[in-house]
Nucleic acid binder design. Structure first.
Lengths: 343, 343
DNA sequence: AAAAGGTGCTTAATCGTGTAAGCTGAGACG
DNA sequence: CGTCTCAGCTTACACGATTAAGCACCTTTT
């Protein structure tokens, strides 16, 4: 039996309860407040039938009619980076209790996927969007906003698109952790940077730069290597940093642009026979869960991603409720220097 | 400007292109094959207008009409467990290139959420579902299948519901890793078990049991503690295992029911002044990414979750294509003993 | 007793799409 | 010259819901 079934519709409920379809709709949506009144007796009877038949309203039909889908789309670059699931939890928490539901898109950090997802959001007629994007441009975002879709960006990249944003102040954060390294006596501090064409990559290198400058240290090209925010390739970068130069020219500390890279760096250093933190100090950025599990545990900058998610969710709900507010709002989430064993 | 916009519909495209709405629909869906033919000239003109107006079909309306949503829902218990994002990647990979899209639900391992998500799937009229569930029962699954929703379960728990399943053979896997511990000379092997009311918890403890029996070792209640698959509380369990007994009565190895617990166990042992693996060997189950990052790196059972995801996705697509096949199919995914430093 | 007002329904239009069935005009054919 | 065929459209209904407007009946007011 393929059980290609007839699922109950309002029609079925109405027939069974001996009322018109409209009554069923009014009852289900609790719209007894306006001009239309439904007697308590009928209401009960309808609800009983709904229960008995296991009726579930067809949200496609409903959205078609109401022009609202009660959907919030969340796009993240990489679900396998623990950072983002936590952020989603935050958004989830903000949305819980409202009538909205979230749907998650994992773009796998691909520009093509990101564009495709924007299309999907338009086709699905989602009401709101939370974007964590490294590839979309202002024009892509405009397609969303022009369609009347409320949009919140996480990370400052899309500030120019005129949407609300929630972000960590990455530059000061990067500056602070490099300052910390300096305060511990380090003078030759290397930076394992993220991609230069992404704002997180840029901001972290800027912060690095500023901290050096403050302390009167020279910025040396030789101390900077560009990676991808992912573990792959980090070992080679570390090799090239340490193998090439004379011992006294080697960095005594490495500031990695994120934790994944930092952890991989520690392993690469181990293979080179260097101990962390005795020979080289290492610190990261993000404070992913693994940061405290590795040995040595990782000194890093804690971004409260769950809170960022919650703020993004709340901001979005506010917009969705109040309609258009005057100006886009940009919220900063505090960061935290977390000192552990690695530096 | 709130830009509560008029989004283009087929109507708009039709008007602009000087044809009827139906033509637009036929062109968009490439339905020139049947009785209806559209001239190449018109086709081009329509597509040009579609492009120019940035028309995107409203999938709500479409699903309403066609009774197919092209949606596959994926429900997982915990997005923050790295295991599941990988599985989702696998499903994603299987679905890529088909006309289906996936939507992810994170149930946060709550029975209430799981039920609520089943409702959502029914309301959204998703075409297929991949379930990783610890709480749904056969009746819940029947609600899905009765509504004509193709369903695939990951993990053997829902085999009784008559749906296709994809699973690792956890019992043999558990047996194998305990066998390995025995082969390394361990005789007093403790088990940090998962919840007794979940199949993964049960199967792993059964495998543990079988391996002991094979080797002629006695199963001792005192060597087993029940946890939750999460790090919280593990420290106390370890304390109670090791603090209480005389040194020669202590276990020399601990088999944890999953990696998260194993990692936490290693840390707890460290606080008790015991070295891993010299004083106590520890092994886990799952092979999450952190397993190779921690020190000592974790000996564990590798479940190829990405492959499980892909298989689940493929199975589902097959069902969705072919309609009803005769019998539910149960696929086993190979596991792998991964020996690292911790045991 | 007629008018007014309120309660509790029903009727019917509408959202944007897919698709079967009908229509039209031009060329082929007897 | 009338009929047939067929390519290439258009017409019209259906999907399942929301919601404004209308209607019947009863009670209260004038």
């Amino acid at each position: 039996m393929p059980s290609e079934n007839h699922r109950p519709t309002q029609e079925d409920v109405a027939r069974e309860a001996g009322v018109s379809r409209a009554v069923v709709s009014y009852v289900i949506n609790n719209r007894s407040g306006g001009k239309v009144r439904i007697s308590e007796r009928t209401r009960r009877r309808v609800l009983e039938v709904v229960q008995r038949l296991g009726y579930q309203p067809n949200v496609n039909a409903r959205s078609l009619r109401t022009r609202r889908s009660q959907l919030i789309a969340v796009m993240v670059p990489d679900l396998t980076n623990p950072f983002y699931p936590l952020m989603i939890r935050g958004i989830q928490a903000a949305v819980e209790g409202s009538d909205y539901h979230i749907v998650v898109y994992d773009s796998d950090d691909s520009a093509a996927h990101e564009r495709a997802f924007v299309d999907m959001m338009l086709r699905r007629h989602v009401d709101g969007v939370v974007l964590v994007s490294f590839h979309l441009d202002v024009e892509d975002v405009r397609r969303l906003t022009q369609a009347g879709i409320q949009t919140v960006g996480i990370g400052g990249r899309l500030r120019a698109a005129g949407i609300d944003t929630v972000a960590t102040r990455e530059r000061p954060a990067a500056r602070e952790i490099v300052r910390y390294l300096i305060s511990r006596g380090h003078r030759r501090i290397a930076h394992l940077a993220g991609p230069q064409d992404t704002p997180p990559g840029q901001l972290r290198i800027q912060g690095y730069h500023e901290a050096l400058e403050e302390a009167g240290l020279r910025y040396e090209e030789a101390l900077v290597r560009y990676g991808t925010f992912k573990p792959a390739g980090v070992a080679q970068l570390i090799d090239s940093m340490f193998a090439a130069s004379a011992p006294e020219q080697r960095p005594t500390a490495v500031f990695a642009a994120n934790d994944l890279m930092a952890i991989e760096a520690i392993r690469a250093l181990g293979r080179l026979g260097m101990r962390v933190p005795e020979d080289v100090a290492v610190c990261g950025f993000d404070n992913i869960p693994a940061a405290e599990l590795v040995t040595p545990s990782l000194t890093t900058i804690g971004q409260d991603c769950q809170r960022m998610g919650r703020l993004a969710g709340e901001t979005l709900l506010e917009r969705l409720g109040a309609g258009a507010r005057a100006e886009p709002r940009h919220v900063s989430v505090p960061y935290l220097l977390i000192v552990r064993e690695s530096a």
